[in-house]
């Protein structure tokens, strides 16, 4: 009897979950429309909201988001813009302030993260009770498309280096498709100072050091279809600096 009521309680808890999906954008007018459509397509029986943090895109991204609000409702799509480009880490903090869910999903707007994986993140979290579910490209079922040999080599080298030096317990450190308990994200994000995509690594390493339960699900990563990639040439130097920084501070 007790077990029945417990499982019913758990079921009820699942139904009460709300997911706030934070999507930072800069010049993603087409991609944001596509991603919103795909999120609604793949999360039909889930209570969620999409928070678009747009850093003053000159291409009219915000106009498109307003049109999408007309289609899907202003309570489902929240536009929380900022005046200018202020960086990824602060975009998440900004979006987090407006999040009303008890879970937060962070994903890129450029379609390299496909919303069809969202149900597997949610399922994994419910099954394991994890504080963080992170998408990994480096296990079977996952993968990457559109990278040349150099990009693959850099990625593998960076990963081996990080695994050897940091022992993070996570196979994909620089991926940024993740689901967090809201309280955990608030806790971890406040202690992160890095910029750019070292920030993703810092988040997961700090969370791992703090002893949060982290689970992984396979995702595929298709390099951006529309728009140009925003990664600069000094990527490797920044990565090594980030690694060193994490080595001495975590």
């Amino acid at each position: 009897m007790a077990s029945i009521s417990n499982s019913m309680e758990a079921k009820e808890d699942d139904d009460n979950n709300k997911y706030s999906i934070i999507v930072p954008t800069y010049n993603e007018r087409l991609n944001i429309a596509l991603i919103v459509y795909l999120i609604f397509k793949h999360l039909q029986n889930v209570n969620f909201e999409i928070i678009v943090v747009d850093d003053g895109s000159p291409d009219g991204t915000q106009e498109i988001v307003k049109q999408l609000q007309q289609v899907y409702g202003e309570d489902r799509i929240l536009l929380r813009p900022r005046a200018k480009k202020l960086g990824l880490g602060t975009a998440y903090i900004h979006g987090l302030k407006h999040a009303t869910g008890n879970f937060v999903v962070i994903m890129d707007a450029d379609l390299s993260h496909h919303p069809k994986y969202l149900p597997s993140f949610i399922k994994k979290q419910i099954e394991t009770g994890a504080s963080i579910v992170t998408g990994t490209r480096y296990v079977s079922g996952g993968g990457v498309h559109g990278w040349n040999l150099m990009r693959k080599l850099t990625s593998r080298g960076a990963n081996v280096l990080a695994q050897t030096l940091l022992w993070p317990g996570v196979s994909d450190l620089t991926g940024s498709f993740r689901l967090y308990k809201k309280s955990v994200l608030e806790d971890v994000i406040s202690s992160c100072v890095s910029k750019g995509y070292v920030f993703q690594m810092e988040m997961i390493v700090r969370a791992s050091r703090k002893g949060y339960h982290i689970e992984e699900v396979p995702i595929t990563f298709v390099d951006r279809v529309y728009g140009s990639s925003k990664l600069g040439g000094s990527e490797i130097v920044e990565y090594l600096k980030g690694l060193l920084y994490l080595l001495v501070t975590t």
Binding site: H114, R137, Y138, V139, S140, G142, G143, V144, H145, G146, K152, L153, R156, G157, N159, V160, T220, F221, V222
Partner: peptide
């Protein structure tokens, strides 16, 4: 690195 590179999971069908 070598093993990782050889077994690098790719997903052309996803594209």
């Amino acid at each position: 690195v070598g093993v990782g590179l050889m077994r690098f999971p790719t997903c052309p069908q996803e594209s």
